[in-house]
Design a protein around this nucleic acid. Sequence first.
DNA 1: TTATACTCTACTATATTAATAGAAATTGTA
DNA 2: TACAATTTCTATTAATATAGTAGAGTATAA
Lengths: 144, 144
Amino acid sequence: MRITYKGDYALKTILKLSINYGKVLSIHKLAKDLDIPVKFLEQILLELKRVGFVKSRRGKVGGYFLARHPSKIMLGEIIRFVDGPIEPIACINDNYRGCNDMYRCIFRDLWKKITEQTSKIVDNISFEDLRRRFTDKKFLAYTI
Amino acid sequence: MRITYKGDYALKTILKLSINYGKVLSIHKLAKDLDIPVKFLEQILLELKRVGFVKSRRGKVGGYFLARHPSKIMLGEIIRFVDGPIEPIACINDNYRGCNDMYRCIFRDLWKKITEQTSKIVDNISFEDLRRRFTDKKFLAYTI
DNA sequence: TTATACTCTACTATATTAATAGAAATTGTA
DNA sequence: TACAATTTCTATTAATATAGTAGAGTATAA
């Protein structure tokens, strides 16, 4: 697993929408507050919309909002969608189907173990959990 | 952490040299047995030599061999050297020095936890351990 | 002396990453 | 109805990383 800028942006955006659940936030507002290039965020949000994480409203008071409650969106879902599989190496995905490479097979168990451990973390934390952590930390100096 | 082809090649090469500890193997032999492009492996071995993982002998019966006993080479050392830090996201390396991005800070603990768990695996397995696993598996159909 | 092997520097092709550009469609409101 | 703010869509681009390839040079055992 490697989190790219795109993934980082997506996670921060979903968190922001979670904190503001119920409201509609414009791309411009999100991009400004999260320090993300507007046009890049635009693309990310369109993808997140197509797959059903967020919804949008056009026009004057338009913007984006979460399609589900933050408690129903797991961190791992966003990571996998934006940055691909959790696995540390590509070829583990098809479960080493037809693996006749003995050296690779020795490492296989390790990559699987790492994948399982990482998944256990990201698949058990929802954006509601993150939102709660956020408010608990009380970053009063910042504007939410 | 993401293991690239280069990293995969390096790991398999060190394992091969561990299994054949005490012998000298040529690039050609290694490349052929491990199915790695010769000139690519050449580069990788030079890097591994410069940093002291392997040593080499030139000339007619030349080749490469481990600079240390397999029990003294940890998996994580090779991974970090070839494919960089274990962290799933780049900016965690400097420990978020001067982090005034509250959204990032929320994720920070997670990336640290994932990093710690992964490190715990790769930093506690030596190539001697891997060699033992290999012989225990008794892949008799293959040529070691 | 020669065959075999490592050494070194440079080059290249492709994919991924991280954007940027601009025109079109929608919608609330004055 | 006009318009301003907003999303939508398609294309393009620049930079970097990845995965090699090429070729000339150096060392060494027999």
